[in-house]
Computed example of a mutant assay.
Amino acid sequence: MARHVRDVMTGHPTAVEPDTPVHQVATAMRDEGIGAVLVTEDGRLRGLVTDRDLTVRILADGGDVSRRTVVEACTGEPVTVGPDDDVDEALRLMRAQALRRLPVVDNGKPVGIVALGDLAVARDPESALGRISAADPNA
């Protein structure tokens, strides 16, 4: 069974700069089949943006979204874990903060993302969430 975050995280996360247009971020999410993108500046984590963030913080406002940038939608200063942190610590943080994803940071630089589904697959692959998370994404 996986003991460390590095064993379950998705490495090489997609990252964008704060001034990236939201439509470009949404396109990357669609094309890569992902639900979260890291926002970085000078190689340092500045935030995390999810598909839900784009919906409730940008689209729900209405108006012209073509001039909106990802920094307007992201959660700044997200809770993070390190790659050598125990998986139980990641789960504890997710429960305590009601989070579905945690950026993984090593020496101040993002190296991955660990999602609730990743932990479910690693800890209980036969659970409903484990099976859903392990299934191929819908196209």
Rank of each mutant, 00 (worst) to 15 (best):
D19V: 06
T20G: 04
T20N: 05
V22P: 00
H23C: 01
Q24K: 14
Q24H: 14
V25C: 11
V25R: 06
A28H: 11
E32C: 02
G33K: 12
I34M: 04
I34G: 02
I34Q: 06
A36W: 07
A36S: 15
L38T: 03
V39A: 05
V39W: 09
E41F: 02
D42Q: 12
G43K: 12
G43S: 11
R44I: 02
L45I: 00
V49F: 11
V49N: 09
T50H: 11
T50D: 08
T50W: 13
D51H: 10
R52P: 04
D53F: 12
L54S: 05
T55Y: 14
T55V: 15
I58C: 00
L59D: 04
L59G: 01
D61C: 05
D64P: 04
R67L: 07
T69Q: 11
V71A: 14
V71E: 15
A73E: 04
A73P: 01
T75I: 03
G76A: 15
G76M: 08
P78I: 11
V79P: 00
V79F: 02
T80G: 01
D84C: 03
D85Q: 13
D86S: 06
D86M: 01
V87Q: 03
A90E: 09
R92W: 12
R95D: 12
R95A: 14
A96K: 12
Q97I: 00
Q97L: 01
A98G: 07
R100A: 04
L102D: 10
V105R: 03
D106N: 04
N107Y: 11
N107Q: 15
G108W: 09
K109R: 15
P110H: 08
G112D: 07
